[in-house]
């Protein structure tokens, strides 16, 4: 019987290679084009609008390029929007406050999330997946509604105040809603799963015999935790912290629903400038500044992901 594979004639080579290249090309080009158009390009537009003046009309911003009277093409860059950000304490305060809230919330997430992730790695194997699912499940329900739930709990005649009043611990309702406390609570609550999952991923990959080796070498459990477990879970700590910190800096829903008039966060400022004041140039300037602030952590996150991928 003739070999079926040998009876197949070799195709003309260049045509074949062309086809391969075409196939491979489409695979990479389609997502590249989509992301370039709908994700990359907009940032150029943001940069452009942030350098223009607000005008009445649609779109409500001036052109950067215009024809001057002598026929020369004129480029008018307007840095006033950025000057405003620097001079008006509202924006600067909002930036600093966002960073502070995000950093604190990240730390609290880490403090709650680490023991949770560690706890899940220590239970019976059959319980791990269900416990992990329970961490993820709230994430699948609406973010907005989960934040909304806290309004009912925190407000003046809400659950906590009713409980405390009923127990006679306080005489009049505590102001819990519309405070910075509520904002911290909301962010920690909303982003906790993003901390637990990467932590669990690194902790569960850790070889348990490392702790036994540490113990064998005379290391007490607590010091083994600090010297072995924590350093080895560092990748998870970094990933989790960035996944919480970066989106939290620009968070809008939580400060809007749970925060008070003073709990200024930059995401909310951007929203207000855009929807209420309709000042697109200032809104985009805020966005540019926010991006500049996040470039370092985002790149850090990227490098980290690449490294994980190689590992």
């Amino acid at each position: 019987m003739p070999s079926p594979s040998s009876s197949k004639p070799a195709k003309p080579l260049h045509a074949l290679r062309e086809r391969l290249r075409l196939g491979r090309g489409t695979v990479a080009v389609v997502p590249l084009l989509w992301l370039g158009l709908f994700f990359g390009l907009p940032f150029l537009i943001i940069a452009r609008i942030s350098l223009s003046e607000v005008v009445i009309g649609l779109p409500p911003y001036s052109d950067l390029l215009s024809w001057a009277e002598d026929g020369m093409l004129q480029l008018r860059l307007n840095f006033a929007n950025f000057m405003l950000l620097w001079q008006d304490s509202l924006y600067l305060d909002a930036f600093i406050n966002s960073l502070r809230v995000a950093a604190t919330a990240t730390l609290i997430c880490l403090l709650i999330g680490y023991p949770m992730a560690l706890g899940i790695t220590r239970v019976r194997e059959s319980l791990r997946v269900p416990l992990l699912m329970l961490v993820i499940l709230p994430f699948w329900t609406s973010f907005l509604i989960r934040i909304y739930a806290w309004i009912g709990i925190l407000k003046g005649n809400g659950l906590i105040n009713n409980l405390l009043l009923g127990l006679g611990l306080i005489d009049e309702p505590l102001a819990l809603l519309h405070t910075d406390f509520a904002v911290y609570l909301g962010i920690v609550y909303a982003y906790l799963p993003f901390m637990v999952l990467p932590l669990y991923a690194t902790l569960s990959r850790m070889d348990h015999s490392l702790l036994e080796a540490a113990a064998d070498l005379g290391c007490r459990p607590l010091s083994a935790f600090w010297r072995v477990t924590v350093p080895l879970s560092l990748p998870g700590i970094v990933a989790g912290s960035l996944l919480v910190f970066v989106p939290a800096v620009g968070e809008f829903v939580v400060p809007d629903l749970l925060g008070g008039p003073d709990s200024l966060m930059i995401g909310k400022v951007l929203w207000t400038e855009f929807f209420n004041n309709r000042d697109w140039p200032v809104a985009t300037a805020v966005a540019v500044a926010l991006l500049a602030l996040l470039v370092v952590p985002v790149l850090l996150f990227e490098r980290f992901r690449e490294k994980e991928q190689d590992a």
Partner: peptide, 17 residues
Amino acid sequence: MVGAPLVMPDVILGLAS
């Protein structure tokens, strides 16, 4: 461009789009 949207704040993504 695949990594950035994972950590980009919603307000920026919305505004940019």
